[in-house]
C-alpha cells in the first residue's frame, strides 16, 4: 500500500480502473451465462445420444450373442476378416463463443449388405444384423465423440471464465477499492491537517498582532 501515491491524480486513475474492472466482470458474467446455456444445450443432446448408445449397444451385444451361438465363433471371426477395413474421419473445427469445437465429418459407417465385403449368400442374416448394429453403434460413438469433446471444451471455458470473474470480483476490484479509499482518506487527512495548520498559523498571527 505504500507504493500508492496518495494523490488526487492517482485517485482518479484508480476510480477509472475500478470502473473498467467492473465492466470486464459484467462482460465475463454475460459470457459465462451464454456458455452455460450452450453447455446445457449440448449436454441434453449428449445424454440423449448416450441413452441411445446404450440401447443400441445392448441390442448389438445381444445380436452378437445370438450369432455366436447359432453360427459358431469361427464363422463369425471369418466374416469379420472380410469386413476389416480402416475408418477415416475428417475433423474440422468451429467456434462457440471463442471456444474451438471439433466437427467430425460424418461418413456413415453403416453399410448396405453389398458393401460389407463378404458375399451375402454365404453369411447368415444374424451376422449381418450384428454387423449392422455395431456399425450403428460406431456411428453413435463418433457423433458422441464430437459432442462430448465440445462439451468438455465448453466446460473448461466456463470454468476459466468463472475463475476470471472471481478474480476480478474478489481480488482485483476490492483491492482497487481499498486503494482508492486509502487515497481518499489520505487526501482528506492531509486537507484536515492543512486546515488545522492554517488555523494555528492564523492564531499565532493574531496573537502577534495583539502583542504588538
Amino acid at each position: 500500500m505504500e507504493q500508492v501515491n496518495p494523490t488526487r491524480m492517482e485517485l482518479i486513475k484508480k476510480n477509472a480502473q475500478i470502473k473498467l474492472a467492473e465492466q470486464g466482470r459484467d462482460l465475463l458474467r454475460e459470457k459465462m451465462d451464454a456458455l452455460i446455456q450452450e453447455f446445457f444445450n449440448i449436454m441434453e443432446s449428449v445424454s440423449r445420444s448416450r441413452e441411445e448408445l446404450e440401447v443400441v449397444a445392448s441390442s448389438a451385444q445381444r445380436s452378437l450373442l445370438t450369432a455366436l451361438g447359432v453360427d459358431d465363433s469361427v464363422t463369425l471371426k471369418s466374416a469379420s476378416f472380410a469386413t476389416q477395413k480402416g475408418l477415416l474421419i475428417d475433423i474440422k473445427g468451429k467456434n462457440i463463443m471463442g471456444v474451438p469445437v471439433p466437427i467430425l465429418e460424418k461418413k456413415r459407417v453403416t453399410k448396405s449388405v453389398l458393401e460389407r465385403g463378404y458375399s451375402i449368400i454365404g453369411v447368415s442374416g444374424r451376422i449381418d444384423e450384428t454387423a449392422e448394429k455395431f456399425e450403428m453403434e460406431l456411428d453413435l460413438i463418433i457423433g458422441l465423440a464430437e459432442t462430448e469433446t465440445a462439451l468438455r471444451r465448453l466446460g473448461g471455458e466456463i470454468q476459466m471464465t468463472r475463475r476470471r470473474v472471481n478474480a476480478l470480483e474478489q481480488v482485483l476490484i476490492p483491492e482497487l477499492r481499498k486503494q482508492a479509499k486509502y487515497i481518499e482518506n489520505t487526501i482528506d487527512e492531509r486537507e484536515r491537517e492543512d486546515l488545522f495548520r492554517l488555523k494555528k498559523v492564523k492564531k499565532i498571527i493574531e496573537r502577534r498582532k495583539k502583542a504588538i
Binding site: D72, V74, T75, K77, S78, A79, F81, A82, Q84, K85, G117, Y118, G122
Partner: peptide
C-alpha cells in the same frame, strides 16, 4: 467356408495362426 476364410485372411493380411484358428 475354409477357402473363404483363407482368402479373407489373406486379403487383409491376418497372421497365419489367426487364420488357422478359424478353420474347421
Amino acid at each position: 467356408q475354409n477357402i473363404k476364410t483363407v482368402l479373407r485372411g489373406k486379403n487383409i493380411h491376418v497372421t497365419s495362426a489367426e487364420i488357422l484358428e478359424c478353420l474347421v
